[in-house]
């Protein structure tokens, strides 16, 4: 019960009582890894609050610890200092509430496309009947356009299709927060573009998965998808350099946006921020 009480105190001490409780509250978080005799500091003093319904991107150079932070939110890596509260409770272990899409797809190569999604659904959606679990698996695979490939093995699919399976698997467990670790980094530019749109489609079309946190290297991708962009300073001992609000209305049309002044300003700002 102790952590729960602690969480409530934190929420009550919020400055604006009218504001909804944040979905994720990161304060004073740091990460050290053991190295040789001592420890090496990867991240320090991370302060970040994410509201329900936001699309957040983490951007920064390689080795700045943005993926480490995502893994800590997932519960796959422990934090060294500070507190990290999800829905008011400390994050202690991985959970399907924070489903993750990995950079290298992480599909089980010996299972078919269908089975890859079904095993996750079957494991998590325990309140559904067997028929409902199957129907849900079929539905998400149809939504990502893979209904004709359900019996194939991941090795028989292109990179883009594999990542669609991984995204379908994550959405199928109805996470409250979706975590994406450079999901389109290994894909060609054309495939990346269409998957970005599909991701926005899925996100806006699914009332249950409101919040997305994505790690990316790609400035355009970050602007196109995000509500806020979290810029990391260079590692080691990286921290948040600045948080940029993307004030572009949704639904966003990529073609008209890319010629707009706001887009160009954001782009220039991010480029300068990442180069200094």
């Amino acid at each position: 019960m102790a952590p729960r009480l602690l969480a409530r105190t934190t929420i009550n001490s919020a400055i604006l009582p009218m504001e909804a409780a944040p979905l994720l509250e990161i304060s004073g978080v740091g990460k050290n890894y053991p190295s040789g005799q001592g420890q090496i500091n990867i991240l320090r003093d991370i302060e970040l609050t994410i509201q329900s319904g936001e699309f957040i991107s983490f951007i920064g150079h390689s080795g700045c610890g943005k993926s480490s932070l995502l893994n800590m939110i997932a519960g796959l890596t422990s934090i060294s200092t500070g507190t990290m509260l999800f829905d008011g409770k400390p994050i202690e272990a991985p959970s399907p509430e924070r489903a993750m899409v990995f950079q290298h797809y992480s599909l089980l190569p010996w299972l078919s496309v269908y089975q890859n999604v079904y095993e996750a659904v079957d494991s998590v959606q325990t309140e559904l009947s067997k028929a409902e679990r199957k129907a849900l698996t079929d539905a998400v695979l149809t939504r990502v356009g893979l209904s004709n490939h359900v019996h194939k093995k991941p090795m028989q699919l292109s990179g883009g299709m594999r990542q669609r399976v991984a995204i379908a698997r994550a959405f199928a467990v109805h996470p409250r927060m979706l975590l994406l670790d450079e999901p389109f980094g290994a894909l060609d530019a054309l495939t990346r573009g269409s998957l970005q749109e599909e991701l926005l489609d899925l996100w806006s079309g699914d009332a249950r998965t409101e919040t997305v946190v994505m790690v990316t290297h790609d400035i355009d991708e970050a602007i196109y998808l995000s509500d806020r962009i979290v810029v990391f300073s260079d590692g080691p001992s990286a921290t948040i350099k600045e948080i940029i609000t993307v004030d572009l209305p949704r639904p966003r049309d990529k073609q008209s946006l890319m010629t707009s002044q706001t887009w160009n300003n954001l782009r220039t700002h991010l480029l300068l921020s990442l180069h200094c």
Partner: peptide, 26 residues
Amino acid sequence: IPADLKAVSKVFRFSRWRYISKVLLP
């Protein structure tokens, strides 16, 4: 066994048996 596949089993909360039969053994 690749760390990614272990992470998948944890995130999607695979039971011990599901982990052994669908991840570990294959």
